[in-house]
């Protein structure tokens, strides 16, 4: 009798205890968790190579693009007061490029900073907290003008085609002594100055390949003879 009594009491007690565990935790938690409670996000921005007074007055802190607001102090540190949630913190300056970061603040006040990935918003790539901001570099707004370089002109094929032959024609005779009759003969044999009989040769050559024949040689002999005279 007594054991039965004790057993039922134990049953009830365990059940009550479990129930309390399940729901009570909720009740206690919701009393602790004020959804509007503000938490502090801390961070520091630094720009190597510039004095603080140069860049701090023009730098603004944007939280979620302006939904909340924070200000930089004179040493580059800042504190932001936000309720729980996930925020994008971005620093803007007209000449410096900062990388935005995402900060999650959970209901217990734990803060986690991670890389901003808009394509995969849930991807977690941890960054240091308290936040550290350093500029990626200068903002580069301008295109460079095409500068005028002599090299560019000289490299263009039109100029090369025009200038190089002239250079050859002028330079090479200067280098060789043209009064020597032998060299003169050589030069003429090079057929540089002769009228272009060579061009048709290509077609001649092709027809030669497919059919035979020596008739063109006679014409050429006559022409050469004429020239020599």
């Amino acid at each position: 009798m007594k054991t039965v009594y004790v057993r039922t009491v134990l049953c009830i007690l365990t059940r009550l205890f479990l129930l309390l565990l399940a729901y009570g935790e909720d009740a206690v938690d919701s009393a602790k968790r004020n959804p509007n409670e503000l938490f502090t996000i801390e961070g520091k921005a630094s720009v190597p190579g510039m004095k603080a007074s140069e860049w701090i007055p023009a730098t603004k802190i944007l939280i979620d693009g302006g939904t909340y607001q924070g200000f930089l102090k004179s040493d580059g540190s800042f504190q932001l007061f936000v309720p729980t949630g996930s925020y994008v913190i971005d620093l803007t300056h007209p000449a410096l490029d900062f990388e935005p970061q995402r900060v999650d603040v959970n209901s217990k006040g734990n803060k986690r900073a991670r890389k901003l990935n808009n394509i995969q918003p849930n991807a977690v790539s941890h960054l240091t907290y308290p936040l550290r901001f350093k500029p990626k570099g200068q903002m580069n707004y301008f295109q460079k003008r095409e500068e005028f370089r002599i090299i560019d002109i000289l490299k263009s094929p039109m100029v090369i085609m025009m200038v190089l032959p002239i250079v050859f024609l002028v330079l090479i005779p200067k280098l060789i002594n043209t009064d020597d009759p032998e060299i003169k003969k050589e030069m003429q044999s090079l057929n540089l100055m002769n009228p272009k009989q060579d061009m048709p040769d290509l077609s001649e050559m092709v027809t030669n390949l497919f059919g035979g024949g020596a008739p063109p040689q006679k014409k050429k002999e006559k022409a050469v003879k004429g020239k020599k005279k």
Binding site: E204, A214, K220
Partner: peptide, 12 residues
């Protein structure tokens, strides 16, 4: 082309 030049000239 330059080969074609040589040949006929050489021949001539």
């Amino acid at each position: 082309i330059s080969g074609g030049q040589e040949q006929p000239r050489g021949g001539g």
